[in-house]
Amino acid sequence: MQLDHLPLNRAAVIRAIDWDVLPDQEGHRLRSLGFEPGVTIEALHKGILIWRDPIAVRVGRMTVALRTNVAAAIDCELKP
């Protein structure tokens, strides 16, 4: 399941990140913020009004905001 479709407040594990569809800079920043396969994440909040974009995601003990087009490149699996 792509991160942008993840239900809120459910822990999930990153399965794969499609680095090729991300612009270099965003891939680089995503990595330095700790996004990597095997890391546990959790979608916490979605943006305002009808847009529901960007998404606030917990990664480690940190909260990161990213847009849905970047989130769509992150494939994850809900934890049971």
């Binding site: 995503l30 913020l33 606030a56 905001a65 990213l66």
Partner: peptide
């Protein structure tokens, strides 16, 4: 063409 938003809160 695009802008990006990626930030630690």
């Amino acid at each position: 063409r695009t802008s990006s938003f990626l930030i630690e809160m």
